[in-house]
């Protein structure tokens, strides 16, 4: 596995940068979708997606999701040795899978609200990764 890279300017690990970005993004998804389907169902869907992807992206298993929200504390700890690109891929898969679940449940109703906000941020994460 490739080592975590260091950001040139702020001296911050770029893994942390990617994590910060996805942390904000997940918080935004949580806020938006929980208003539509409620915290209990959303937490259930998050955990379903994590179970599905946890084998391929083990760090996702440290993501704690309950009706109170999402905690990335465990992920930050586990991601010290994970390459930023891996973190990006893991979260990207998570968001893709959630989006798949949302459309299985409500066709375009959730994704129509979600896409305009999520898509630019995933692109931004890709840009950060490609710069390294």
């Amino acid at each position: 596995m490739a080592p975590a890279l260091k950001d040139d300017k702020g001296g911050k690990w770029s893994s942390d940068l990617v994590l910060d970005l996805y942390s904000n993004l997940l918080a935004e998804i949580w806020e938006l979708v929980s208003a539509l389907i409620g915290e209990a169902i959303l937490a259930f869907l998050f955990n379903l997606a994590i179970r599905k992807l946890g084998e391929k992206h083990p760090f996702l298993n440290s993501l704690k999701v309950s009706e109170d929200g999402i905690s990335l504390d465990g992920v930050r700890e586990d991601c010290r040795t994970v390459a930023p690109v891996e973190i990006h891929r893991g979260f990207q898969s998570l968001i893709n899978h959630l989006s798949h679940l949302f459309s299985a449940l409500a066709e375009g109703v959730i994704n129509k609200e979600l896409f305009p906000k999520v898509f630019p941020k995933v692109k931004e994460a890709e840009r950060i990764i490609s710069q390294k």
Binding site: I41, L105, E107
Partner: peptide, 11 residues
């Protein structure tokens, strides 16, 4: 068209 939601309690 449809809307389907899980009936879920405590996970």
């Amino acid at each position: 068209s449809y809307l389907t939601l899980p009936l879920t309690v405590e996970g």
